[in-house]
Design a binder for these strands. Sequence first.
DNA 1: CCTCAACCACCAAAATTTTAGTTTTTATGA
DNA 2: TCATAAAAACTAAAATTTTGGTGGTTGAGG
Lengths: 204, 204
Amino acid sequence: MNLDAAGYETLPVSDGIVAERILKDMEGQEIALALVDVMLPGKDGFELMEDFQRADIPVIYLTAKDDVASKVYGLTSGAEDYIVKPFEVLELLVRMEKVLQRTGRSREKIQIRDVVIDLKQHSVVKGGVQVPLKPLEYELLVTLAGSKNVAFSREELLNRIWGTDYMGETRTVDVHIGQLRKKLDFHDVIRTISKKGYRLEDLD
Amino acid sequence: MNLDAAGYETLPVSDGIVAERILKDMEGQEIALALVDVMLPGKDGFELMEDFQRADIPVIYLTAKDDVASKVYGLTSGAEDYIVKPFEVLELLVRMEKVLQRTGRSREKIQIRDVVIDLKQHSVVKGGVQVPLKPLEYELLVTLAGSKNVAFSREELLNRIWGTDYMGETRTVDVHIGQLRKKLDFHDVIRTISKKGYRLEDLD
DNA sequence: CCTCAACCACCAAAATTTTAGTTTTTATGA
DNA sequence: TCATAAAAACTAAAATTTTGGTGGTTGAGG
């Protein structure tokens, strides 16, 4: 449910055997990433690794905590990452994005009105012309545009872009938001949520 | 009954063995939270912990006895929280919401008649159109709608929304309630409880 | 030493919240 | 049933808070 809400297309499967069958006769379906619970009825997560590798799908394992043996085994057996339950949704999303990026499966472009963000080129084009953005402005835009219509508090933005250890003013965010609005004419696209933060609005 | 009225979807089970069976062959059913009475026929609450952990469901224990040993045992054995009977419904709801939030299972939308609150977007839509709410109005609405059919006193609302240290008039609440009623046409939905406070009514 | 992005501080402007005064509704008891 | 007091609703203005914009300072990298 959380992944759907975050804008991913999901295909939930709760049985190892079923998963295997889906992987076998996958008709041209592109699967970008597999989140695999180690404990799974039918056929467990580790046994499925072979199938995922054949299908060229990167794997992130999920497991109950304090199972160090599984963790080590999981990573050496070819998984891209490993996350221990219970986990924060945000952490999962961050790790997923990292894996997608590392394996070249991440979205390459994001469009908002007449603005196109090319993640591969690391460039932003508005109405056909390049808009030069500073590093932080770019990061901020990608964060907001990567989760359209989601409200971010200043603290969340600071955590995601500046890093969890940042200790400065939350008003700093405002300055960069101001720059983005001016450079992209996003005065109405980036909506201020009083007392909270900002939201980038777009109907797709 | 209280939880149903408050807008939660419940699955009451009165026997430990039955609960265990439900957890075993849970077919794609998403269970966000378990409220478990320690005293339970069949198999007691503590014995069930293993099953809940396997199913990755957070647990809040309920117990009649004010038994410190049980409390300690309950929390160390992996429960998210513990509440002693008798308890106020409102307190239970608050604790539930905390656990749901902490474990990333909180609701993303709340619906009241033709009004939808999208917590992620931090937006309120009535009959398809956005309704702009001020920060306090939004908080007030979320609080009331998050516990439908539960009566809040003005003091409770002040504590939860304004903070425990607020020193102003309780009449202030009335003004914001008035704004909500006007903006959402909730004149009958938000019921005044004379000399007490307010209650948001909805039968779902 | 120079350059530039980033941060901070300040002030003005905008938005939000509170208070206050008045009217309406509700509760109570004769 | 009616009168009366208390509570709540309504309205608008005052007070406060938050945000936007600008320019100066800092610090890292070349």
